[in-house]
Structure formats: C-alpha cells, structure tokens
Design a protein around this nucleic acid. Structure first.
Length: 199
DNA sequence: GCAAAGATCGGCT
DNA sequence: GCCGATCTTTGCA
C-alpha cells in the first residue's frame, strides 16, 4: 500500500485530520508490523487556537510543530502517557494532528503484550494507550514519518461516515469542532460526544 | 527558583 | 462512574 508524500501533510490541519481517518498507522518492530486503522483524530493549529501547545508561540517543546510537515510530535502528559501527533502546515505555521485511537489490524498479539494482560478490549482506543501498544515514546519526537521505516502512515479506504465534535480533555478552544472520528467504529476512545457547538 | 495545570489511564467502589 | 497517581513544561516572581 502506498505512503503519503509530504504535501499531504502540508495542508490545513483540520483537513489533514479528517483525511487521516481510515488510513493505517504502521509501526515496525524487529521486522514485524504492528498496525491499526486510524478511527479518531484531533487538529491543533496556529497561534489562534488556545488549546494548542503553540498558542503562546514557539518553545523548545513545540519546536517540531513549526518545522516541516509529516514529522512526529511526541510529548508526555499527566506524568503517565505519551501522545503521538503528526505535524502539518507549511514550515513556519504551527500545526499537528493528534492520533487519538486506532483499530488494531496487524500484530494484535504484540500490541496486547505491550499493553499488559489486563487491558481487555482497550488495546489502542486512546492517545496514551495507542502509544503504549505500539511502543512509541519520546525518542520518536521529530521522526520523519514520510521517510521512516519504523513508523509511518499508509493509504487506506475512506470511511463512509465521519463525524466531528469538540476536542476531548481541553479546557479552552471549546468552540472548535476539530475532533474527527468514525462513528461506526467501536474503537473510538469515548462516547460519540456532542456534535453540536457550545462555546 | 517555584508553583500550577495538563491533548490521560487504570484501578477501585 | 469516580478518584488518585505522576512528572514535564511553562509562566511568573
């Protein structure tokens, strides 16, 4: 299956977030593929988006958001979890798509092993969970997903239905409907959520 | 230097 | 369904 050129990621962040639904996130560990279909994403864009880490300008942490598109932006939250983003927009414009959930399709056994025996059905249905399932941590910050052999996106089939809502877990930027998900998937991280705007 | 909040998860009731 | 762990980054004194 084909991979995306950098130009795919260099577009308006919410468009990229929406277009990534149905695509396959692939992680290669010791020549074995662990992969899942992306079912839930969120967009964070620009200095005008109060929920974005880049809201207050460029810092050491958000550096990759300002760099070229198609790189991994991996950061640590709540003292427990890593979150995987893919940078977007042309160089100089900060943007990233948070991958919130995937539906496991390849190497499911290995993912469960990474998650631990008590994970149940919650293999990769959450930003922190999917990074653990795919063994992704801060070392991947800045990884070029267009060229990488160990972490990248593959083209998939476009989902028949897509819904959008407010983003999860953010206290500001509530008027942005920048969370995109496949409502038919049981692997989205939370309930179907509000699809109505409520600032 | 220090204090506070945070793009969450897992375990327990 | 609720609550606590846990630690980095940032903002301000």
């Amino acid at each position: 299956m084909g991979r995306y050129p950098r130009s795919f990621f260099e577009r308006y962040t919410p468009s990229v977030a929406k277009d990534l639904l149905g695509c396959k996130l692939v992680r290669v560990i010791e020549n074995r593929r662990l992969a899942g279909i992306v079912v839930e994403t969120e967009a964070y864009r620009g200095r005008r988006d109060p929920a974005s880490h880049a809201y207050r300008g460029r810092t050491r942490r958000t550096d990759v958001m300002f760099e070229e598109a198609g790189d991994a932006y991996v950061y640590f939250v709540y003292g427990n979890n890593w979150c995987l983003n893919i940078t977007t927009e042309p160089k100089g414009v900060p943007g990233a798509v948070l991958i919130r959930a995937i539906a496991p399709v390849e190497g499911v056994g290995a993912m469960v092993k990474n998650r631990g025996p008590r994970c149940g059905v919650h293999i990769a249905d959450g930003p922190g969970r999917l990074t653990k399932a795919l063994a992704i941590d801060g070392h991947f910050n800045g990884e070029d997903l267009v060229a990488s052999k160990v972490l990248f996106m593959e083209r998939g089939t476009r989902p028949t239905r897509i819904e959008r809502s407010t983003r999860v877990g953010v206290s500001r930027g509530g008027s942005f409907l920048w969370r995109f998900f496949i409502p038919d998937s049981k692997f989205v991280s939370r309930g179907k959520f509000d699809t109505t705007q409520n600032p």
